[in-house]
Design a binder for these strands. Structure first.
Length: 918
RNA sequence: GGGAACAUAGCUCAGCUGGGAGAGCGGCGCCCUUACAAGGCGUAGGUCACAGGUUCGAUCCCUGUUGUUCCCACCA
């Protein structure tokens, strides 16, 4: 081991060693219980961001923990072809070389994307390796792999056969820049400042004028009605009559519908079924004609007569100008409203009538609701045991999930792109019918014609992602992998893709796997923000690159930070200071290990002169060939209290870590590990051991090594690199071969041995040390001073237990000597007194402390204690408390009061003494 | 409009089913003490957003108010 902790010097080496030794591999067939996580597939164009880092840290910690706990653990990796995103990236890339998609044609363009993918597609996976991701890389899948494509076709065709997939002419979201249809989810409603234009419409006979208000005046070119509320007196006489559309002079009917809000705007609504979703529904209801006035490029078509060829916004300006010129514009009022923007390119999305493929998801959604509802009444453990329930954590998201599922609308799955799964539907030139088929079709299923043309469109990227948990396992084949790992154990991902992905996986998973859920738990992690709580974005320039963090602090420190902050349901504000703190933790562990190894003689050459090195113990001789843990278990009852104490603390920490991990409370597990390693093992046990090794060498050597070994195992899921590096430096010992990686060792399980009476006396020693240190600190006694102190144990039954600790208290409190008080100091004015619960210490003040300072200290202690007494008295004086609180608690409070009062008496004596001295 | 979450020490956050509030970082004081100055020891700092209610007792449970954030639906 190197002297300094330097993660950069070993993380890459360790990772390569694991990979070379196939440590990440899961078995298709195994006697071990299965545990599986499907990794959310990043886009092939992606680069690792902090969201990935958080998810990967959580998933990796869970996988490593399960793997070490005896599970056949599979973490299934892969990448997503990400239709629009990838096509855009490569298009931009080609544009730099002056190559245009339209010019080179579909086949050549798709070829170019594949080339790009081969070259750049694995970058993110390389980055994930830096984080320590222990996924089974040999199983990596890509959504356009032959196997996954087969699954996509199977699902498409089955849905078609079940009449859940259909082609229809509907109003859909159209991005005029991407030139494709979008699903509802891909449209982001965004607040925009605009205007409310109030326009005068005249009745056909020219007698009546009514005013309608609109945010999109250009759409009047496509109006096919004006709607008013049936009970609106202002317009009642117009219902059923016609009004003249301004500018175009086309006549449209006035219809009445309760959908119209009398009090909004002018109470009259222009109806444009061809370019507005609400108007579309209204139009359907009233059998209005549906007019398309914009083309796919977002220009006015021939329907718009004199406006033909203008872009939508140009048409808006022109329409407004013309209305004004004709005196038909009553007024313009600024108005903020929301417009739908394309998720990928921020272009305003236009509702358009178009032929597209849709999935009728309603029937699938009902089942998807059921499985989540079922889990509400079940515990996590129960959910894990079955395959028909899904628990969503944090639970707050279930309501959102239900709400979305209950109001779900048909899913538009066709996209006018080239990169993706081409839709397996063929159109017959002869009879115009559609043939949908698992195999590439050459013959029309309806007329037998052979002139077929495949649908040009591809499927929404999320269509193939929806199959991810089973398509990656070989479905539709019932492979061994599939049988072993489906349903998977947990889906861990960001809440932002709950609908895009999680909801759809649940629907598809249930539908195509005999009602079995795709995963038993859904764990939604928070969003990683910058330290001010702002979303990280390139335009804001506040992006912290995870790779930079790893370079500066090491992957372990970063992982430990993320795990510590992964508390459920809250955004994470990433701060570098916090990461630095956890790097210090890794450093602490590193140095603790170096101490143990050096002190036991396994690590040479760095000890300062004067420190006694123990000849390296041969553990196999000490334990007679038994593994350390087994030997400890059989002997621990007879160990020195300090060793019993650390073993008990280890049991407690182990128990807590396992419980927290079961519930995926990684932050609690991380905190427990931090506390145990630093504040129990390092601060106390190692310090005690310096003295203890002088007298109880064998058992202490074994405990020092064993507890370190167990601490490394407990920490490994969070900080895999540093723990592995240290572990490989530990000496040979029974039951452990040095060449075996830590990541494949057994995760600790708490032994049943509880806190023994012996180990409890260590608590008494610790508080004695703390009290003496505080005395020194408060009185500014030089750390170099070595006072001679005497003690008196108040309760005689504790006398022996305390006495046993004297050498350790002497060592840790830096005393010259600690001996029992024989009466010489008692009552001596020049002797200070320090009280703990069980013991009183007498400290000679001469030359150590100035009397004034000590007086102050005692006075402060006394007044603190008096305040405590007031509090307890207040409690005990309430009769209702005595009557209704549990007897146990009342007794405890009374006992506390007695103790506090005796303390005050002691302080009074001390003050009296000090006063005399002055 | 509907739903969810959050408000705790200067900062970032823990606090499980209600019994006198914790950590990390930062501050202050003393120490380069023999694994670790990325360290050690000590110490200061909080009417747990506000107002009610339930209870012997509320940071914790209930109601309301205020503030922040997010999701869904969008009255043109």
């Amino acid at each position: 081991m190197q002297k300094a902790y330097d993660p950069e010097s070993f993380e890459t080496r360790i990772y390569e060693w694991w990979e070379k030794n196939k440590c990440f591999r899961a078995e298709d067939e195994s006697k071990k219980p299965a545990f599986a996580i499907a990794m959310p597939p990043p886009n092939v164009t992606g680069a690792l961001h902090n969201g990935h880092a958080l998810g990967d840290t959580i998933q990796d910690a869970l996988t490593r923990w399960k793997r070490m706990s005896g599970y056949n653990a599979l973490w299934m990796p892969g990448t997503d072809h990400a239709g629009i995103a990838t096509q855009m990236v490569v298009e931009r890339h080609l544009a730099k070389q002056n190559i245009k998609r339209a010019e080179i044609g579909r086949a050549a363009f798709v070829q170019k994307i594949w080339e790009w993918k081969e070259k750049h597609g694995d970058i993110i996976m390389t980055q994930k390796r830096k984080l320590g991701v222990s996924a089974d890389w040999e199983r990596s899948r890509f959504t356009l792999d032959p196997g996954l494509s087969k699954a996509v076709r199977e699902v498409f065709v089955s849905l078609y056969e079940q009449k859940l997939m259909y082609r229809g002419t509907r109003l859909i979201n159209w991005c005029t820049r991407c030139q494709t249809a979008l699903s509802d989810l891909e449209v982001i409603p965004t607040e925009r400042k605009g205007n409310f234009w109030h326009i005068r419409y005249k009745s056909a006979d020219g007698k009546v004028t009514l005013v309608i208000a609109t945010t999109r005046p250009e759409t009047l070119l496509g109006d096919t009605a004006v709607a008013v509320h049936p009970e609106d007196g202002r317009y009642k006489q117009l219902v059923g009559k016609k009004v003249k559309l301004p500018l175009l002079n086309r006549e449209v009917p006035v219809i009445a519908d309760a959908y119209v809000d009398k009090d909004f705007g002018s109470g009259a609504l222009k109806v444009t079924p061809g370019h507005d979703f609400n108007d579309y529904d209204l139009g359907k209801k009233h059998s209005l004609p549906i007019l398309s006035v914009f083309d796919k490029q977002g220009r006015v078509n021939a329907e718009g007569q004199q406006y033909k060829g203008l872009k939508i916004l140009e048409a808006r300006d022109k329409v407004v100008t013309d209305l004004e010129a004709q005196g038909l514009l009553e007024r313009i009022e600024p108005h903020t409203h929301s417009v739908g923007l394309c998720q990928r390119c921020d272009t305003v999305v236009e509702p358009m009538i178009s032929d597209q493929w849709f999935v009728n998801v309603k029937p699938l959604a009902e089942k998807a609701i059921e499985v989540v509802r079922r889990a509400e009444k079940l515990s996590l453990a129960e959910v894990d045991r079955r395959d028909d329930a899904i628990k969503i954590v944090p639970e707050g998201w279930t309501n959102t999930y239900y709400q979305w599922m209950e109001n779900i609308r048909d899913w538009c799955v066709s996209r006018q792109l080239w990169w993706g799964h081409q839709i397996p539907a063929w159109y017959c030139a002869k009879c115009n019918e559609i043939t949908v088929s698992r195999e590439d079709s050459t013959k029309c299923a309806h007329c037998g014609g052979s002139e077929l043309k495949q649908d040009e469109d591809v499927l929404d990227t999320w269509f193939s992602s929806a199959l991810w948990p089973f398509s990656t396992l070989g479905w539709p084949e019932k492979t061994k992998s599939y049988r072993t790992f489906y349903p998977t154990s947990v889906m861990e991902t960001g809440f932002d893709i709950l609908f895009f992905w999680v909801a759809r996986m649940i629907m598809m998973g249930l539908h195509f796997n005999d009602g079995k859920v795709p995963f038993k738990r859904v764990y939604l992690h928070a969003m990683v923000r910058d330290e001010k709580g702002q979303k990280m974005s390139k335009t804001k320039g506040n992006v912290i690159d995870p790779l930079d963090i790893i370079k500066d602090y090491g992957a372990d420190a970063f992982r430990f930070t993320l795990a510590s902050m992964a508390g459920q349901g809250r955004d994470i504000k990433l701060s570098l200071e916090r990461i630095e703190g956890y790097k210090a933790f890794c450093n602490k562990l590193w140095n603790a290990a170096r101490f143990a190894l050096m002190r036991l003689g396994f690590l040479e050459g760095e000890l300062p002169p004067g420190l006694k090195v123990i000849a390296a113990p041969d553990f196999s001789v000490i334990t007679q060939g038994k593994p350390l843990e087994e030997w400890i278990t059989s002997k621990r009852k007879h160990f020195h209290p300090i060793n019993q104490w650390i073993l008990a603390r280890l049991d407690l920490a182990t128990e807590r870590v396992n419980v927290a991990m079961e519930e995926y409370r990684l932050n609690d597990a991380a905190a427990e590990i931090y506390e145990f390693v630093w504040h129990e093992y390092c601060d106390w046990y190692i310090e005690f051991s310096k003295e203890l090794l002088n007298s109880h060498q064998e058992e202490t050597s074994v405990c020092l090594m064993h507890v370190l070994d167990q601490a490394l195992r407990l920490s490994h899921p969070f900080i895999p690199f540093v723990t592995e590096e240290i572990y490989q430096s530990l000496p040979e010992r029974p039951g452990v071969k040095r060449t075996e990686p830590l990541m494949l060792q057994a995760f600790p399980k708490a032994s049943k041995a509880s806190l023994t009476e012996e180990s409890e006396s260590v608590g008494m020693w610790k508080s004695a040390i703390e009290a003496l240190r505080a005395f020194r600190g408060e009185n500014n006694i030089s750390p170099k001073a070595r006072p001679k102190i005497t003690y008196e144990v108040m309760a005689s039954e504790k006398h022996q237990a305390f006495e046993k600790g004297a050498p350790y208290i002497r060592a840790l409190a830096q005393l010259e000597s600690l001996s029992e008080e024989k009466g010489s100091s008692r009552g001596d004015a020049a002797v200070g007194e320090v009280l703990t619960r069980d013991v009183k210490f007498y400290i000679p003040l001469k030359g150590l402390v100035d009397v004034e300072g000590e007086l102050k200290r005692v006075q402060k202690e006394k007044s603190d204690t008096l305040a405590d007494i007031e509090f307890v008295k207040g409690k005990l004086s309430r009769e209702s408390f005595i009557a209704k609180a549990p007897q146990e608690l009342v007794d405890k409070e009374r006992e506390k009061l007695r103790f506090l009062e005796s303390k005050v008496a002691e302080f009074d004596r001390a003050l009296d003494r000090l006063g005399r001295l002055k």
